[in-house]
Amino acid sequence: MTTTFDGNTAHLRPADQTLLQIKDLVVEFDLGGGRVVKAVSNVSLDLVEGETLSIVGESGCGKSTLGKAILQLPAPTSGSIVFQGTDITKLSKKDLRNVRPAMQMIFQDPVSSLDPRFPVSRAVEEPLKIWNRGNEIERSAKVDELLNSVGLDPALVRDRRPYEFSGGQCQRISIARALALEPKLLICDEPVSALDVSVQAQILNLLQDMKEAYGLTLIFISHDLSVVKAVSTRIMVMYLGKICEIATPDELYSRPLHHYTSALVGSVPVPDPERKVSATLLEGEPPSPLDPPSGCRFRTRCPAATELCATEEPMLRLAADGHYVACHHPRA
């Protein structure tokens, strides 16, 4: 059976309630010579204003690609992205530019997302300058306010350049920059992975505050399931470019239905030297995104895989209230 257009949209809510609705998004990279990386395949998702959707999944499963595709960096291969009622995949270059301030992203690699020649103050001020927000003095005050809110002392950091900072400090600078334009939608790609736990807590609380203060809506990409649990209203689990499961955090952790999710939840390292986690290691080789397995993409490593899993692709379907799973034989 082939994928049908609206097969995987059971979890979507009515379009008029959502801030962002993505339907059937596909992102492929052509490597030449007929080799195509299928980074994101037929992903649909939506976000209600004020919500935090977390995306978790194996490294290389297409989370960053999905995040960037929402910002049209680069534009997706196909699919629609409706943001505040307009399909931004169909906008002209000029109109798209006008939408950009409302959608910002914190990129995964903190150091390389800052221009090495720009002192911190200029890096954070740049978005304000691009959009001519305020005059010199107002902008400078705004920069100080932003730096303060990410836990950096403006007087100390303003004139320094990125290479003088540690990885975590760079991350905070890029968070300040992303917040400068007061976006409606903020896509955070591993925003706290470079931070130690105490600063991480500060940043997460800050994002929470910003959410309340500005009605910010978040897409939160992370590997840290404990962090994800603390911040999100909904969690989406991806494997090799596809959605496996969507649920609220409490539901997902207490009752993971998909076999990949359960492997994921079981591998969380615990700060306790007595406990070993290696028992739940995921077996098998990760498949290549150039040539993903037929049917369910997880079947090559799934302990419960059957014949059916190889021939038919499982569709997302409702399993419990607000809990959707794409699996033929979900865990009980």
Partner: peptide
């Protein structure tokens, strides 16, 4: 290829400005 170029684009910088401000000096 660096992400700060992507970042500048996502902020709405024009290509001309990205080249002049971020690429040429580097």
């Amino acid at each position: 290829n660096r992400e700060f170029v992507l970042a500048a684009r996502s902020m709405g910088s024009k290509d001309r400005n990205i080249i002049w401000r971020h690429i040429v000096p580097n």
